[in-house]
Design a binder for these strands. Structure first.
Lengths: 173, 173
DNA sequence: TATTGTTATACTCTATAACTATA
DNA sequence: TATAGTTATAGAGTATAACAATA
């Protein structure tokens, strides 16, 4: 949103405010009308995603894993022998940004980089035993605390329908 | 993710890589197995949200409006006489971060701040005629380009079911 | 004393260019 | 020359503390 540019382009705030008298709403007017916002997919997606991420982090809090870190561990487990670029791009993470993320996981000994013998430029990523153990515990916490809560809220059939629609949007839109 | 801390805590990258020979996957092994990721709500929500935001920005490109800016205009239109704090918190925007955003909209003459006569601390926000015109054009573009495409992908009934579930998650989860 | 708008600041995420070592 | 990992950097988004004006 170019904060600094807006800053530079505008006069000091207080000087810019109109002196016109304001037709303010009564102080007790209550909650605002969100109107069509409740039908805007982007808005609802964003709001729902924030809620889900917050809950995920809470549920998996003893393991100190972010949703992104959990995704990496899941992917490494399912895809042994792959390099950084392959893992990163599959998750929509840019290679430069994946470096610090891997540093974090590797310093906690959840995975290791191994220089490939085929192509000495690339690093094969591998879960450690500790990484596998943490992933297993995380999966359990997610299943019994996070996903279960969601099924309770929506019903299992609706939950699956929701996942299917989101997957379709993510792939085909 | 505390990039700088991770940086400081770790030895230089190349020195940290294990010398063990890597069991790399064949170069032509094809796409990765995303496995259980395709059933993780948070992951799918994030991916879908990014797609939807990208498309929104494309559809409304002639007007140069972000989803967040569009939401503000919608809310101002439905809620005349409200101040910055009320609008910001309704959208989940923190008051300090709303200042620069309003600066941008006001410098484009889409809305104005008016000092309230009831309480001279607060600024009543009001759409300008130009703001209303831009909002009207944006609504049209969103309806005929963005939402229509979504209905086509999911079907109108499914689209409504999706919105209802996301709304429920955003409110009740 | 409390609240509104604001400033300053910091941390995370995301994005791009350019370096190095290998190929 | 091209690619993998990395560095540096810049931009958004988000979060908190503190100040001036006003209540």
């Amino acid at each position: 949103m170019a904060v600094s540019k807006a800053r530079a382009a505008n006069p000091p705030r207080s000087a810019a405010v109109r002196k016109t008298s304001g037709a303010a709403v009564p102080a007790d007017a209550g909650p605002l009308q969100i109107g069509e916002l409740s039908e805007r997919l982007g808005y609802l997606l964003k709001r729902a995603q924030l809620k889900i991420f917050e809950d995920f982090i809470r549920c998996v809090e003893p393991l100190q894993l972010t949703p992104a870190q959990f995704s990496v561990l899941l992917l490494l487990d399912k895809n042994p022998g792959r390099n950084q670029t392959e893992i990163a791009t599959t998750l929509g993470i840019l290679r430069p940004n994946f470096v610090a993320m891997l540093d974090g996981l590797e310093s906690r000994e959840l995975c290791i980089r191994i220089r490939s013998t085929n192509d000495r430029r690339s690093h094969i990523l591998q879960l450690t035993d500790k990484g596998r153990a943490v992933l297993a515990r995380a999966k359990k916490l997610v299943a019994i605390k996070h996903e279960a809560r969601l099924s309770e809220l929506l019903g299992e059939d609706n939950r699956e329908a929701l996942l299917a629609m989101l997957d379709k949007i993510a792939r085909e839109f």
